[in-house]
């Protein structure tokens, strides 16, 4: 296995706030990694640094050993990194099929080709029946599926999922976990931000924990959840006294 993504000493400061602080981590090709941490820990900021929405104050992002620091989001997408947004961003006045076709155009210029790719992906994520529905008419779970479908359509090697499981009921959660696992089994490396810890543990073989922009723990789900520092970060200092 080789390292598909490497973050080297990645730091970003917004004025006096250091949102991501000397973050060093990597992803192996084909693995599924969970990025967890309390609210405001810098998880989404880390995503935005990887895909080029923010430029880091210092540090580097390497993708397949190539330095992609400073590239624009659309260039990062063409390199092979897809991402979803925490607050889903469907193109509301386009149909589900058209939404996905937009992603497919990253790899083809022909509308027919894009329609074919979209059709395959709708099958994969289970949106085939909603093909001609305008995206703003979708339910929340459907929108989350669409969000993944759009990212998948760009044919990424690495998929960054930002809280795609939040707000789902148990049945929907189970289906979504199954979907993410199958995407991973197709050979797409996954890095996911998630608050639903059970789900993260079900999908990911490795977890990285952020707190105040720093990496405070890394390891298998079992190691991480029994780590006292992680417990402290989530539940506060008082927890020890219990």
């Amino acid at each position: 296995m080789s390292k598909i993504l490497e973050l080297k000493d990645l730091t970003i400061k917004f004025g006096g706030l250091t949102a991501v602080n000397h973050l060093n981590m990597h992803l192996e090709e084909g693995e599924a990694l969970g990025l967890i941490g309390p609210n405001g820990a810098g998880k989404t900021t880390a995503f935005n640094l990887i895909v080029g929405v923010y430029q880091p104050t210092s540090g580097k992002v390497l993708f397949n050993s190539e330095d992609i620091t400073g590239l624009k989001p659309y260039q990062v997408c063409h390199k092979g990194i897809g991402r979803t947004f925490q607050v889903v961003k469907p193109f509301g006045n386009m149909t589900v099929e058209q939404n996905i076709m937009v992603g497919a155009f990253a790899k083809t210029s022909s509308p027919r080709g894009a329609r074919q790719i979209a059709s395959n992906i709708m099958e994969k994520v289970g949106l085939q029946a909603k093909k001609n529905v305008l995206a703003h008419n979708l339910t929340i779970p459907e929108r989350k599926r669409l969000e993944m479908a759009k990212a998948l359509a760009t044919n990424p090697q690495l998929l960054l999922l930002d809280e795609v499981l939040a707000g789902l009921n148990p049945t929907e959660l189970e289906e979504a976990i199954k979907l993410i696992k199958s995407i991973n089994e197709d050979g797409i490396t996954i890095m996911m931000i998630e608050h639903v810890l059970q789900a993260t543990m079900a999908i990911c073989s490795r977890i990285v924990v952020l707190d105040y922009g720093r990496k405070i723990a890394e390891g298998s789900p079992q190691e991480v959840t029994s780590n006292p520092e992680v417990i402290k970060a989530y539940l506060g200092d008082e927890y020890d006294n219990d």
Binding site: P90, V102, G103
Partner: peptide
């Protein structure tokens, strides 16, 4: 519809 989402999907806005 959404410039951020479009850029994330590889579109040079």
């Amino acid at each position: 519809e959404d410039e951020d989402a479009a850029a994330a999907m590889g579109i040079n806005v």
